[in-house]
Amino acid sequence: MKTLTFLSRQAPFGTSNAKACLDMVLASAVFEQRVNYIFMDEGVWQLVRGHEPAGIHAKNTMAALQALELYGVENVFALEESLTERNLSLAHLQIPVRLCTRAELSSLIKTSDVVTAL
C-alpha cells in the first residue's frame, strides 16, 4: 500500500481541475491506497456548502465529496491559512475536514509516496 497525496488548489468551477483531482482521489481509494486529500488556496472553495452550479450549466461535482467517507477516504484536510485568507471557517463547509498548518502540510507531503497537485 502506498500513500497518495492530492493537493486540490483550484476553485470548483471555471476549470476542470477540481473534478480531475476528485476523480483521481476516488480511483486511488478504489485501489485501497492510503489517500490524503488536501484542499488549499482557491481549492478550499470546493468545500463550501450551498453551491448552485445549475445557474451556470455546470454539474455539481462537489456533491460527490459527500461520498468520500463511503470510499474510505478519511484523511481530508483544509489548509487553515487558505480558509482564513478567505474569511471561511469550518461552519461554512459541507463535509468535516481536518485543519492543517503549513508545517503539517510539509510533513504530509514528506511522508507521501506520490504527490499530485491539480
Binding site: K2, D23, A27, F31, Q33, V114
Partner: peptide
C-alpha cells in the same frame, strides 16, 4: 484506458 492505469503506475 481508465484512471486505474494511473493508480497502477503509482503502485
Amino acid at each position: 484506458s481508465g484512471l486505474g492505469q494511473w493508480v497502477d503506475a503509482c503502485l
